[in-house]
Amino acid sequence: MNRRDTLKALGLLAAGSAAVLANNSCDSKGNKTPALTDAADKMPGIQEFEYERTKQLYEETYFNEHEMATITVLADIIIPKDDKSPAASEVGVPEFIEFIVKDIPDHKLPMRGGLKWLDVYSLNNFKNVFINLKPEEQIAIVDEIAYPSKAKPEMAQGVNFFNRMRDLTASGFYTSKEGIADLGYVGNRPGVWTGVPPDILKEHGFLS
């Protein structure tokens, strides 16, 4: 089979038009991450138990409203909107975190406990729970737990929680459509690999 037949087999070459390939032919429509709020139809290649698991997890709720609000504030402190891409909460990161802690239950206790730790610390220092603090007060606390290399030893629990919160935020954000575009990943579509572009080889000293 030649390349043209290959792409036909893949269903990507509509009647004689190769132009489809120039576009994001494998992407779902639009520029936004589709919201997944229930189990999508069972597609080929998904095992029965996987489908059932996803369905069941959607039916469960782990975080309460207050916890979700706190997660949302933290996620947007970690990944705020800038000139290149939206903030974490705009691409569904809090909802992703709600799902993934149910899917990977090892996250549950450290997340719940960490959120509580944050509120108690906020209360002791600023007399209110984290989400009710002024932005500069929130940042003052985050500054104490966001940098493992300079954080005080007594903040270790907060640092650990924030590391996890940062990881989950990054996982949710950079697997979203907007996050992938922000990173500039341009693969996952049929193409031809002929090697590193010559100008880049030159820039890195592999081509004179």
Binding site: P34, L36, D103, S176, I180, N188
Partner: peptide, 27 residues
């Protein structure tokens, strides 16, 4: 594989975003 491969799926097409919960090398 012609029918059942999860080739070319994007991570955001699943709520677990490719995590290895159901398959050790990612979903």
């Amino acid at each position: 594989p012609a029918k059942d491969a999860l080739q070319l799926r994007w991570p955001y097409e699943s709520p677990r975003r490719g995590a290895s919960t159901t398959r050790p090398f990612g979903e």
